[in-house]
Design a protein around this nucleic acid. Structure first.
Length: 282
DNA sequence: ATTAATGTTCAGAA
DNA sequence: TTTCTGAACATTAA
């Protein structure tokens, strides 16, 4: 589920409940018969975590990063269907990892729930975060971009703008839902080569990135029909009600009321756009 | 039975 | 060197 707004919602939801809590135990959940990727393996991970405290929880692109009191880090990648919850997961069958805390609080555990099981949990020695998630593998966060940065990275490549927005090495946090929504609001055709965009078009993209992502964070993300994405307390997000193109193939455009929403495939992912609002050339 | 789904990564080809 | 394609990971629902 998670793109930047969903991961931001998870982090905000769990932060105050996990910071400064001493880790009592970490276990695989009993139903996880085909275990997700956990590095290092559980016995070693337990030695690294038990007795330590989380001093901060933050988001890096679509990843959740826990800073531990000994300068090591725990990194969780929710990938397609991962979710951090404090209680009440969507179902009990796809709970993967339980981190329990010593002493009392409103919640005594933090859970990683993941229906498809593509998510990963990785513990990193002090100082290894930079090499793992530094600028060589992850670009700056989408919310830290300014117009100059967009001009710079659009000018560098002839790749299609939609594909560039999805490239985490270029910009971290934008995924398949928000890439389509952003380009629709900017009025830019998803197949335009990035280096063919004039500064007027790049201005619109820069503005749309901020307005779409910030509004989606306000709405606590998008919860689609299968209901998988929830916040930390298993409540729905509401940004799906603001979607103008995503999953709306064949329907009328909600902005211009003239164009039909089209679906194309780019880099093996669906892209949705309005044939009237987003022209090939402009 | 087939297809597609909010993600990432790798191998190999153009 | 850059860019593109296909496949893989695993699960479910239409």
């Amino acid at each position: 589920m998670p793109e930047l707004p969903e991961v931001e919602t998870m982090v905000r939801g769990i932060r105050s409940h996990v910071i400064d809590r001493v880790i009592e135990n970490i276990v695989m959940c009993p139903n996880d018969f085909k275990p997700i990727s956990v590095v290092p393996r559980l016995p070693q991970l337990r030695k690294k975590l038990i007795g330590h405290r989380f001093v901060e929880v933050r988001r890096l692109g679509k990843r959740i990063v826990f800073d531990l009191s000994d300068q090591s880090n725990l990194v969780i990648e929710p990938r397609m269907t991962g979710l951090m919850v404090l209680s009440d997961p969507p179902d009990v069958n796809h709970l993967r990892i339980q981190i329990s805390f010593r002493s009392s609080g409103n919640f005594d555990s933090l859970w990683f729930w993941d229906r498809r099981g593509l998510g990963t949990v990785t513990w990193l020695e002090p100082g290894r975060l930079q090499e793992k998630l530094g600028s060589r593998s992850l670009g700056p966060d989408a919310l830290d971009f300014d117009v100059e940065r967009w001009i710079e990275c659009c000018g560098m490549t002839s790749r299609e703008i939609k594909v560039l927005l999805l490239d985490q090495k270029t910009v971290a946090g934008i995924g398949n839902i928000y890439a389509s929504e952003i380009l629709h609001r900017a009025g830019i055709h998803p197949s335009r080569p990035a280096n063919s965009l004039n500064s007027n078009s790049i201005d619109k993209i820069a503005a749309a990135v901020r307005s779409v992502l910030l509004k989606a964070i306000e709405c606590e993300g998008s919860t689609l029909g299968d209901g998988t994405y929830r916040n930390a307390l298993n409540q729905n997000g509401s940004y799906q009600n603001e979607h103008r193109v995503y999953l709306r193939e064949g329907q009328n455009c909600l902005s211009c009321h003239k164009g039909e929403i089209k679906r194309i495939v780019q880099a093996q992912r669906s892209t949705f756009f309005c044939s009237n609002c987003q022209k090939e050339r402009k």
